[in-house]
Simulated scan of single mutants.
Amino acid sequence: MALQLMKLLVTATTTTDAVPTDSRFFHTTTGETAAGSTLTIDAASFFEDTGAAVTSLPSLAANNNYFNVYINGVLQMDDLSTYTPGATGVGSLAIDVPAGGDSILTSTPIVLEIVSFAPSSTTTVET
């Protein structure tokens, strides 16, 4: 018999599920926020989809979450807002209203949307 290179034959298949969870928090402004100012909304000033008051804004895990801010139904640019997780007095959303632009009027709806992912993977190895 001639010499042969002996090697293993291995195949692997990985299935990954992203499993997103979407949370929405709602607020209606109580006063006008002028251009060049910052509107800061405390966690307790938001309410959930059910109408229940919010007591805490959730933490965002690195690389597994993102948040969107909508003002009067319009998605806003990322660098205009700062999200701070936590309970009343700590958790908040701060929106910088650009100087030279329009103000945010009284009774304007603000929606904070948080999307979180809980990925799971399964690998099957066959030899």
Rank of each mutant, 00 (worst) to 15 (best):
S92H: 07
V125K: 08
G100A: 14
L57D: 08
S116W: 06
T30K: 11
T38G: 06
L93Q: 07
V19N: 15
N72M: 07
S107N: 15
A61N: 09
A52D: 15
S92R: 10
I104E: 09
G89K: 05
L60G: 03
Q4C: 10
G100P: 10
S56T: 14
T40N: 03
A87K: 03
G100E: 15
F47V: 15
D22K: 07
V69F: 05
Q4T: 07
L75S: 09
A61P: 01
Q4L: 12
F47Y: 11
T88C: 06
T28C: 05
D79M: 12
T84F: 01
Y66D: 11
I114A: 00
Y66Q: 07
S120D: 14
T82R: 12
G86R: 00
A34N: 08
Y83T: 01
D79P: 01
Y83H: 02
T16L: 02
A94E: 14
G51V: 12
M77E: 15
F25V: 00
L93K: 00
T29I: 08
T28F: 08
D17M: 02
Y66E: 08
F25H: 01
L112Y: 05
V19K: 14
T30V: 13
P20R: 12
S56P: 01
K7V: 12
Q76H: 03
T38P: 00
E113D: 06
G89P: 02
P85I: 09
T124W: 02
T123K: 03
D79N: 15
T122D: 14
G31E: 13
I110C: 02
V10C: 09
F26Q: 02
V125S: 13
T11S: 13
T11E: 12
F47W: 10
V19W: 05
A12G: 13
P20H: 13
T11V: 10
A52Y: 03
E126S: 10
N63R: 10
N64C: 06
S120G: 04
G73T: 11
F117V: 01
L5C: 10
A44T: 11
L3C: 05
Q76L: 07
P85D: 13
T55V: 13
E113C: 00
P98C: 04
E126Q: 11
A18Y: 04
L3G: 09
D42S: 11
A61T: 08
T15D: 08
A94H: 11
T15Y: 00
T21V: 13
T127G: 13
V125D: 12
A12I: 02
T122I: 09
D79V: 11
D17Y: 07
L80G: 01
A52V: 09
S81G: 03
S120Y: 06
L57S: 09
L105A: 15
D78H: 07
F26W: 06
F47R: 02
T21P: 00
P119R: 07
L60W: 04
L8T: 08
V10A: 05
E126V: 15
M6W: 04
G100L: 13
G101L: 10
Y70W: 06
A34P: 00
N64I: 03
A2Q: 08
D96Q: 12
A62W: 03
L5K: 11
P98M: 10
G100N: 14
M77H: 04
V54H: 01
T82I: 15
R24G: 02
T21K: 04
G89C: 13
A34K: 08
M1F: 02
D78I: 09
G51E: 14
L60F: 09
N64M: 13
T16I: 06
A94W: 12
S81K: 05
H27W: 02
A94C: 10
T14W: 01
P119V: 05
